[in-house]
Design a protein around this nucleic acid. Structure first.
Lengths: 341, 341
DNA sequence: TTGTACGCGTTATCAA
DNA sequence: TTGATAACGCGTACAA
């Protein structure tokens, strides 16, 4: 091992003091280093292949250049789209993203907050629906409070939490608009693949949809609301279950796109043609799924923008406390929900 | 600001020395701390909400707990699947992943290697096809060499590089097998959406496919190989272009699934039914795309396993030098390529 | 403008 | 088993 070359080595090589070397290389507040010396230092650093130790810098400066991102599953296109926005925005700010995935295990968010606090991350971003779980929510809240008390910034993406800045997603409003549009297309007998019990995002979407239809005089039959996992397989099984109930539904709303695609597969496997025999709508407008056939009607969310917004919100400064910005979706009608004769 | 609480604070609170506090909390090599004191320290830490400073630990210990992952675009399901595997494996090892995305800008990999070297990351994982660009490859190689010389571990996922451990993907073998299977199904007039010029992965897949067909006596017409971007839109435009040439191709091979889906969309827009009028095959078997209709014939790659394999390879120790493991795909035939009468 | 010296929070070495 | 104390690599008052 050639051993790591330190700033002292560079200083010695350039025949200047450690302080001068430091100033020349990072251009500190006092940007006063004679060009000549500056050149000499930079040349020496280059010659020695000097690589500043970010950990030492962090310690000396008292702050890191890291921002933490916590998601459930990075393979889920919903989260990976958000992550893309986050990394892009972070990159532009000269920040680096550490990615933590809970893999849907409860309690991991809290644990990861502690990890990131140890890392002294500048900010923590948490994306992804939480469950209606008083204990879990409380301990997460406390962990975040501790982190914020120690000077950390936080922004949530999706579900809000008291006293924490949030880029909130208009789940309810999107579901309402979707219900109105589908009703307007002539559908009357609705089914809902509602996601798991207690999942807040799923519940908001389902409730907005169901309530609106009730108001419009086309209430969803109780038996036509089926709980299922928030995943492709959940959608598949939920749809199979729903179809087996023989309720003659003409449109099925899956509370996210991935579930909707699973539902479409289940419909095909049951020899029902999506669009003609049964319409299907989703939520999110996942880019990768825009080419499914028939095209999936859904509520478009600007997922890639959420990341940038969240970073902005978090880094807005401790002055701005607990801002909540709501981002609303937009209904996109495609071939999976043709106008009903 | 309540100010950060340090280990010294904990030591004082517990009325022990700094050293003892350190040992009690992290259980150092000399695991010798009287249980009684140990308890006292842990209690004090809890009481004060002590959070160890990972940067300080890194500096003192001389190593971090970070592993770096460089990809082109985390929103691309190919990369997000790999990333999921990496984070899962890292998590199990108590490591944390910092994610860097090049956004397809050349030269960024090299820059990110330097960033991660500054971070003193334990290991660097680079996924994603490189271009046949001597300069870029050389500077990346050098950056990696420097990092490795300073004690860092590296593993590539996909394209190999001299003197670097790699989880290589069997692009050629997969393409060969695919060509054989498609020929076996009765197809004879092939088209290829070949990806961009100079893209090594794309080239390997194309060459394996084209060469095999030539050997089988069903050579691909030169005009039926169209270059295009390695993306959904690339596949769409390439397919549109190809169909406009009126070559009566009966099967189109897109060098990845995302492109294949774009190609399917283009076929539909041109009123060609995928499967009946023109068959389509892809590569990767992206999970999110398994439900496209008709089902896409492709070469399945165990993307989520690659991450774990790469970490394992990288951390295998400096002893094992530049190991290359090849992971092969498996042809999965679906409805997009029905047997040809 | 440059250099000296101290502090950042931990770990590890060496005595006690 | 425990406690001083010297690193770790860097930034930055403060002094020159």
């Amino acid at each position: 091992m050639p051993g790591p070359v330190t700033l002292s080595d560079v200083a010695r090589e350039a025949e200047v003091s450690l302080a001068t070397a430091s100033r020349a290389i990072n251009g500190s507040a006092n940007r006063t280093v004679r060009p000549e010396l500056r050149e000499r230092v930079l040349a020496a650093a280059e010659r020695l292949h000097y690589s500043p130790d970010a950990n030492a810098q962090a310690m000396a400066r008292g702050r890191t250049t890291t921002i933490g991102l916590i998601v459930h599953d990075i393979a889920d296109p919903y989260f990976s789209s958000i992550a893309a926005g986050v990394t892009a925005a972070a990159d532009q700010l000269g920040l680096v993203v550490t990615l933590l995935t809970t893999q849907h295990q409860r309690g991991r968010e809290q644990q990861f907050v502690e990890v990131l606090q140890s890392q002294r991350a500048r900010a923590i971003l948490i994306a992804g629906g939480r469950y209606d779980d008083a204990d879990g929510t409380e301990s997460l809240s406390q962990a975040l409070a501790g982190y914020m008390a120690s000077g950390g910034a936080v922004a949530l993406i999706g579900q809000p939490l008291p006293d924490v800045s949030t880029v909130a997603i208009g789940n309810t409003s999107g579901a309402i608009e979707l219900a109105q549009r589908m009703h307007g297309l002539g559908y009357r007998r609705f089914g809902v693949l509602a996601g798991p019990e207690g999942h807040i995002t799923a519940r908001d979407r389902r409730d907005g949809f169901v309530q609106t239809l009730a108001d419009l005089g086309a209430p969803v039959a109780p038996g036509a609301i089926v709980e299922c996992a928030f995943t492709r397989d959940g959608g598949y099984e939920g749809m199979r279950d729903l179809l087996s109930r023989d309720l003659a539904v003409d449109l099925v709303f899956a509370v996210n796109d991935v579930m909707a695609v699973g539902a479409m597969a289940a419909a095909r496997d049951a020899d029902r043609e999506v669009g003609a025999d049964v319409a299907v709508a989703g939520f999110d407008d996942i880019v990768t799924l825009r080419d499914v056939n028939p095209g999936l009607t859904t509520v478009r969310l600007p997922l890639d923008e959420l990341g940038a917004k969240a970073i902005e919100l978090a880094l807005a400064g401790p002055a701005a406390e607990a801002t909540v910005v709501e981002v609303d979706g937009e209904v996109v009608v495609r071939a999976s929900t043709p106008p009903r004769a």
